[in-house]
Amino acid sequence: MKEAVVLAAEVAAGHDGEVDLVLTLSYENGVVGTVILDADTAFEIMQSCGATSSADLVGRAWHDILKGI
């Protein structure tokens, strides 16, 4: 089975007027879907995996991004 990989990272408006991070993932089964993260979570995973910006997440294995959490 392949690894899940981040294909894109974009910001979007959340219901409450905050900004969310929308990650487009290619999952291990080939399906492409989105994951929406709130600001706290997004900043935390960026820090834990050493990403300096949202663009830095693109191309990385999802498993590696989450490893530090």
């Binding site: 910001v11 408006a13 959340g14 007027g17 900004v19 997004a42 949202s54």
Partner: peptide
């Protein structure tokens, strides 16, 4: 439509693509 609002009091993903801003705002 949904309006986004923020201040520099809290880190906002509005700056998600700007590494320097993220570093300072955190």
């Amino acid at each position: 439509p949904i309006d986004i609002s923020f201040s520099l009091l809290r880190p906002s993903l509005f700056f998600a693509r700007l590494p320097g801003w993220i570093k300072v705002l955190r």
